[in-house]
Amino acid sequence: MAGPGNSQELLAEIASRPGRDTVVSFVVKAAFITTSLLFLAALLFAPLITVFATALEKGFEIYFNSFKDSDTLAAIRLTLTVAAIVVPVNVVFGIAAAWSIAKFEFKGKSFLITMIDLPIAVSPVISGLIYVLLFGMQGWFGLWLQEHDISIIFAVPGIVLATMFVTFPYVARELIPLMQQLGNDEEEAAITLGAGGLMTFFHVTLPKIRWGLLYGVILSNARAMGEFGAVSVVSGHVRGVTTTMPLHIEILYQEYNFVGAFAVASLLTLLAVVTLIIKTLVEWRTGYKRK
């Protein structure tokens, strides 16, 4: 995102140019902003407000009390642990995949991209089921795992695996189109000038793709924390042990504890605040400039 000062200057500068039709420009801008806001209001803000309105229905005290429950805290801890494992793995994979796909021409590339896309297309119900088919008692490795006393499904490893499957494509998918668009010229120049591969990546490529990378991380983190369907199948729903935040929200909702359920859900919206902070930080540190 551009710094506000930046784009205001730019707009002012554009507006002062001779021959610019500022009236049309203004109308277009107003139309774009109105459309965006209306669309988002109906689809995104209204549900979000519902969440907060329900969570705060009985006052702030009860809202904050919802977080004192030990099962709720356990759920929050589990969700954070899962995200902490899954997201870094996704980043490494995403960068590797994007590098090989965007920087080189090889046969079967579209096929590979499509394989990376696949987890998005798999219904959450199925993404849980496949791990049951692999590690469940009726599954391929079920008996072996039981003999060796290893729990995968209905335990934390299963939740991590299912989450990894679900969030797998996001970083790669954000980076691939961006890196393709950016081309190889600068990297090739760096290599020709004698820079090493890693150096080229960190000093030439990374600064160019940081926004894509950031969005990828934000998306896969959000998905990792919010995934319900797949995790629900492999979790076993043992209260306080294998319940992630989304599962715990469901439990609270099913108990008619609407305030508690939506209070925990509202915690997840804090992610937006984190996003905001990270983006501001990146902008500030790198002094983002428009081209």
């Binding site: 506000p4 774009f32 979000l48 998905r223 935040m245 996003t275 501001t280």
Partner: peptide, 27 residues
């Protein structure tokens, strides 16, 4: 709108775009 225009609340709205992922689908 989010990349080209400046208006009050733009940054917050921008940050909220990811919410459909973070909110559990059931919610």
């Amino acid at each position: 709108t989010l990349t080209r225009y400046e208006f009050p609340g733009r940054k917050l709205i921008d940050a909220l775009i990811d919410m459909p992922f973070a909110l559990p689908t059931a919610v």
